[in-house]
Simulated assay, not measured.
Amino acid sequence: MKRTRVALALAPFVLLTGCGGLSGGPPSAAPGTNAPPTVPRTATVTVTVSPSTPSASASPGSPGESKLGPPTSTREVTVRRTTDNPPLVLGVRFAKHDGFDRVVIDLSGGRPGYSAHWVPKLVQDGSGDPIDAPGGAYLQVTVTPANAHGETGSPTWVGGPVFHAGLGNVRSVVKTGDFEAVVGVGIVLDHRAAFRILEQRDPQRLVVDVAH
């Protein structure tokens, strides 16, 4: 008897639109049981980008950022990339929306990797000195490879390091570092809440949404 082997092709690319994605938060345990949900705390994808690789802002059929409701998951996220054209961080802006606050990191250049992790406090990259930015929760966003200064050393993201926001949940946004192709953006919150990260282009930017 011959045995038939079936090869299953796994899709090589996973696009993270943010922690938990657009489809909702992590599943809960089945009714009537005490088993915790088996969901990894951190989602990670590694992407290698070359100058000839075309950029993409979202998967086909994904809703536009203006049509999204509040995010639904607090899971941390990491996206790793390498690029020969590290982008510049041009600035960070923020605004209140229906049910969530939005922090936009404006970029120019290649597509960077990024991560978002909950931290007990914000510290200055390199020195480790604490940053005076009172809040009830801290979300540390790291963009790499990226710089917030030009070739002459002049900052492209000016001002700060603390930018007061006073939104529904976001109290302030903090420039935590610009060191060795790593740019830190700390988001000071009134309380921990669900969030997501979206990659967008034309203009290029990272969008961080945090629920109220």
Rank of each mutant, 00 (worst) to 15 (best):
residue 104 V to A: 13
residue 126 G to C: 12
residue 117 H to T: 06
residue 198 L to D: 02
residue 88 L to W: 08
residue 161 P to D: 08
residue 83 T to P: 05
residue 191 H to I: 05
residue 199 E to M: 02
residue 157 W to D: 02
residue 64 G to P: 03
residue 90 L to S: 06
residue 178 D to P: 06
residue 182 V to I: 13
residue 142 T to C: 00
residue 143 V to W: 03
residue 78 T to P: 01
residue 108 S to Q: 15
residue 103 V to R: 02
residue 65 E to D: 14
residue 74 T to D: 07
residue 197 I to F: 01
residue 92 V to H: 02
residue 123 V to M: 08
residue 100 F to R: 06
residue 85 N to R: 14
residue 141 V to L: 11
residue 181 A to F: 11
residue 85 N to W: 08
residue 101 D to R: 11
residue 61 G to P: 01
residue 190 D to H: 07
residue 185 V to I: 11
residue 102 R to N: 12
residue 96 K to W: 03
residue 179 F to Y: 14
residue 171 R to F: 00
residue 167 L to Q: 05
residue 84 D to W: 07
residue 146 A to Y: 00
residue 104 V to D: 10
residue 170 V to C: 04
residue 112 P to H: 07
residue 62 S to D: 15
residue 131 I to V: 14
residue 200 Q to E: 14
residue 159 G to W: 09
residue 155 P to T: 12
residue 138 Y to F: 15
residue 104 V to W: 03
residue 94 F to P: 01
residue 150 G to Y: 04
residue 108 S to V: 07
residue 138 Y to D: 01
residue 117 H to V: 07
residue 94 F to H: 13
residue 136 G to C: 09
residue 184 G to P: 05
residue 194 A to Q: 02
residue 125 D to S: 13
residue 87 P to G: 08
residue 112 P to R: 05
residue 118 W to K: 03
residue 116 A to C: 10
residue 91 G to Y: 07
residue 53 T to D: 10
residue 139 L to C: 02
residue 57 S to K: 08
residue 94 F to I: 04
residue 200 Q to F: 01
residue 124 Q to I: 12
residue 166 G to N: 15
residue 194 A to V: 05
residue 181 A to L: 15
residue 139 L to V: 04
residue 173 V to T: 04
residue 114 Y to K: 00
residue 75 R to F: 04
residue 122 L to N: 04
residue 154 S to D: 11
residue 144 T to M: 10
residue 199 E to Y: 00
residue 96 K to R: 15
residue 110 G to L: 03
residue 72 T to K: 11
residue 142 T to E: 01
residue 189 L to H: 02
residue 53 T to E: 09
residue 193 A to F: 07
residue 112 P to F: 01
residue 123 V to I: 13
residue 149 H to P: 06
residue 103 V to S: 03
residue 79 V to L: 09
residue 98 D to L: 13
residue 57 S to Q: 11
residue 178 D to S: 08
residue 151 E to F: 09
residue 198 L to Q: 01
residue 192 R to K: 15
residue 85 N to T: 15
residue 114 Y to W: 15
residue 156 T to C: 06
residue 145 P to W: 11
residue 64 G to L: 10
residue 167 L to D: 02
residue 180 E to N: 12
residue 144 T to Y: 09
residue 115 S to W: 00
residue 148 A to H: 05
residue 183 V to Q: 00
residue 90 L to R: 15
residue 76 E to W: 05
residue 76 E to R: 03
residue 185 V to F: 01
